[in-house]
Nucleic acid binder design. Structure first.
Lengths: 189, 189
DNA sequence: TCAACAAACTAACAAACGTTAGTTTGTTAG
DNA sequence: CTAACAAACTAACGTTTGTTAGTTTGTTGA
């Protein structure tokens, strides 16, 4: 199923270019040059520029949705669930740093699929927030403003795509551990 | 000095549009429409699209540089310096949320000024990191990986532009206090 | 009253854009 | 040997892009 190699090569190359310059600044001629072919030849494999963006973003968004559902349905403590969320972001981002850049920066250029994307994102944030709120209720988590906690964690996790490629020496497990430590235990002695 | 009102109106309108769609996706005709004039009329006030981006980004980048220098030269403890950095980001971002979006997302489209921008950014991050390292040496800060601490704090602070406009009920002081709490003291009980 | 000026306009430009149509090439299965 | 097909090609299309040149309009200080 995950063959269609030529199409996937185009999508992966596009994701790399989108990360560097953003969706709007990358032309089909740029993409074709990066593939070593002519722009018109791209259309033997994809139907539009728009569809490339959709393929990149929606795939990842659905991975996050599935991962969050698994975490919600586990019987871990709320702090443990937060640590699982950290690991989820690290895993997905490690496997597709370029795609994560598009998801973060170019989601607004989804046309037909914009509403669907926003729905998935809202769901995700609602679940994230509810874990924090339950953690506060059960005295696992300090009674700070739960939205500030989520904002702080989520923006850090969403920016991992910028940082993971620079730190290839750090394994995913080590990174998950260190990041959970910083995000959850704090930095103060 | 800060008059030139018409030019500044154009720059501020541009920053708002750039936040919504990104620099490359905003056309001079979009900008003109938002100003209620024709595209050609913009050129009575600005010299190019590129110059608008430069005016937005470099101004803010220099504010951060000045703020960081003031903090480095203060005699506060390292933890207190980190709290001052949080306040610095909140102040600058509150005064120019739209511009912060361009700084975060469209810096790579600076052409002539790209090297200068990157130089300012590197300097800033170097200073940030050195505060954390000194804090660890002086036993103010837990001996976690200092780059992870900086990454986590800085990405949260850089994303404030997304979040501050949604939380107008929270004063800058309250936000600075809550965010310092979460970033520095942690969320675990 | 009139010169100066800020700020808008119309018209047009060459270049770059995403995309389509129709064709050629090389490989592979019967 | 040949039919089928994937994957490239050339050529062109209508549109949109940033920008320039030259002109008109309304206000303001001498």
């Amino acid at each position: 199923m995950t063959q269609e190699t030529r199409k996937n090569e185009i999508i992966n190359t596009a994701a790399k270019l989108f990360k560097e310059k953003g969706y709007s600044a990358v032309t089909m001629r740029d993409l074709a040059t990066a593939m070593g072919i002519k722009a018109a030849s791209l259309y033997n494999h994809i139907t539009s520029k728009q569809d490339i963006l959709k393929a990149i973003i929606i795939t990842i968004a659905e991975e996050f949705t599935a991962g969050m559902h698994a975490i919600m349905n586990s019987d871990a403590s709320n702090i443990e669930k937060l640590k699982k969320i950290v690991a989820l972001h690290i895993n997905i981002t490690s496997n597709n740093t370029n795609g994560m850049a598009s998801l973060n920066n170019d989601w607004m250029h989804l046309e037909d699929q914009l509403d669907y994307y926003l729905q998935l994102r809202n769901e995700y944030e609602t679940n994230f927030l509810s874990i924090i709120q339950r953690g506060i209720s059960s005295l696992e988590i300090k009674a700070n403003n739960p939205e500030i906690i989520m904002f702080s964690m989520l923006t850090t996790l969403r920016s991992l795509y910028l940082w993971i490629p620079k730190k290839e020496d750090l394994s995913a497990n080590d990174l998950a551990h260190s990041l959970s430590e910083v995000l959850i235990e704090g930095i103060n002695i």
